[in-house]
């Protein structure tokens, strides 16, 4: 599926909006693993990251298919650092029409995207940190031919500058088990 359509379909499947750039990045990563899209990912601080996805989100905003709202330290009610920011992406009336159209045009793929998003909603409530941990664990594990121990995962994670606790790894594996059969 074309990346623009996949992003809109993903947000549509999440109920019309998603909070956090990282959450969208990781959902798209899982879709990439499922071969629903074909995107290049590379390791970044928050886990596997695609400049292509970031660029596509920006283009969708520019062309009025997505509305971007930024929550800052001043607007949130929570105690957060001064430079804290959170992005929320919502479908517009234009993209609602497009999503409706894609649903009819690519029913099978849309069902797979919907299942994937629903699993992430039900398991981790689309929490960006949990999605990020799961993506990191999958990224590390996918480069190995045999199952890895928690220690091995932590060691490899360290080489990417990622810190993963045992609890985080276990939580990630739970989610991945729901999404795919993990080695």
């Amino acid at each position: 599926m074309i990346i623009f359509d996949a992003i809109l379909a993903t947000i549509g499947a999440a109920g019309g909006s998603i909070t956090g750039r990282t959450a969208i990045q990781k959902l798209m990563y899982f879709e990439n693993v499922s071969k629903l899209v074909e995107i290049k990912y590379r390791p970044h601080y928050y886990g596997p990251y695609s400049a292509e996805v970031a660029g596509a989100i920006q283009e969708l905003i520019d062309l009025d298919f997505l509305k971007e709202e930024i929550e800052t330290a001043k607007t949130t009610g929570f105690p957060v650092p001064d430079d804290w920011k959170r992005y929320r992406y919502t479908l517009t009336s234009d993209s609602n029409k497009v999503v409706e159209h894609i649903n009819q045009e690519s029913e099978a793929e849309i069902n797979k995207i919907s299942n994937l998003v629903r699993t992430c909603q039900e398991t981790v409530n689309l929490d960006a940190n949990m999605l990020s941990c799961a993506a990191k664990v999958y990224y590390i594990n996918s480069s190995q031919s045999k199952p890895m121990t928690v220690n091995e995962i932590q060691k490899t994670a360290g080489s990417f500058g990622w810190n993963l606790s045992e609890d985080q790894i276990n939580g990630a594996v739970d989610l991945l088990k729901q999404l795919y059969s993990v080695k």
């Binding site: 623009f4 283009e59 298919f65 009336s93 234009d94 029409k97 497009v98």
Partner: peptide, 8 residues
């Protein structure tokens, strides 16, 4: 919107 998406 659908035309715009088609061109994009």
């Amino acid at each position: 919107a659908l035309k715009k998406r088609e061109i994009m």
